[in-house]
């Protein structure tokens, strides 16, 4: 049976003053996929994701969502400076993930609160519920933001470097959790500069260097030239890190 395509892109380009940040990128995501976008720093991964989500305008090409509506998408971005010192408690932050579905409805319902509590438990962060966001460690903040992203969606999750600020153990836990969620049918699009984890949990890879170097199934990527080089580099970086 053909799986349903939920997101398709054709020749997307994003320009900055200095030139193209993303050029002529095309790919498609089917329901239940886990697409990992890999590439070096400055290769346009975050820009591409923002363009997909409509946060920045595209200069060419077409983005089409076929399943999830705009307010059925979850997004975990890299943290901003403003957030690190923000006076809000964890429950307030996680609940705000439900706001997109509300339209003009002004207040949260019991259902919203229950969902927020459930996502916090899922991430082993329910003990943080009444803590102030700014008093948390970087890893805890990241988990809270992931809980918020999960609150926003049951269908499709966009993650921009989700393991930033997490220690190796927590990163591994997070990847396991994402795999579980993916297995239960959540479609995931994730940016990662950690290629080894990307090929482990993703079933599709998009390798970006402004233009796409590779798009396809993970197995094919591991055999491709781009994939070989990247994995080699990843291993090298990991070894350098240990020394």
């Amino acid at each position: 049976m053909m799986k349903e395509t939920v997101l398709s892109c054709d020749g997307i380009s994003v320009k900055y003053d200095a030139g193209y940040a993303v050029r002529d990128v095309g790919f498609s995501v089917e329901a239940g996929d886990c697409l990992c976008i890999v590439g070096e720093n400055g290769s346009g991964k975050s820009t591409l994701m923002k363009a997909l989500l409509g946060l920045i305008p595209v200069q060419g090409g077409r983005v089409r969502f076929d399943g999830p509506k705009k307010n059925e998408i979850g997004y975990l971005a890299q943290q901003t400076v403003v957030q690190k010192d923000f006076p809000a408690n964890v429950t307030e932050v996680v609940l705000s993930g439900r706001m997109g579905r509300h339209g003009f409805m002004p207040f949260y319902s019991k259902k919203d609160r229950a969902a927020a509590g459930e996502k916090l438990r899922l991430l082993n962060a329910d003990h943080l519920a009444d803590k102030s966001y700014r008093d948390l460690s970087g890893g805890q903040q990241q988990r809270v933001l992931l809980a918020r992203a999960l609150c926003a969606t049951e269908k499709m999750l966009f993650l921009d470097e989700p393991v930033t600020g997490l220690d190796p153990l927590m990163s591994a836990e997070l990847y396991t959790l994402l795999s579980d969620l993916n297995g239960k049918g959540l479609t995931i699009v994730m940016i990662s500069h950690d290629v080894k984890s990307a090929v482990r949990i993703g079933n599709k890879i998009l390798h970006l260097r402004t233009c796409p170097l590779f798009f396809g199934a993970t197995d094919d990527y591991c055999r491709s030239e781009a994939g070989q080089t990247m994995l080699e580099k990843g291993r090298f970086a990991a070894e350098a890190h240990h020394v």
Partner: peptide, 9 residues
């Protein structure tokens, strides 16, 4: 708290 997230969702 997070305009980008709000916009995206």
């Amino acid at each position: 708290f997070d305009e980008q997230f709000a916009r995206a969702t």
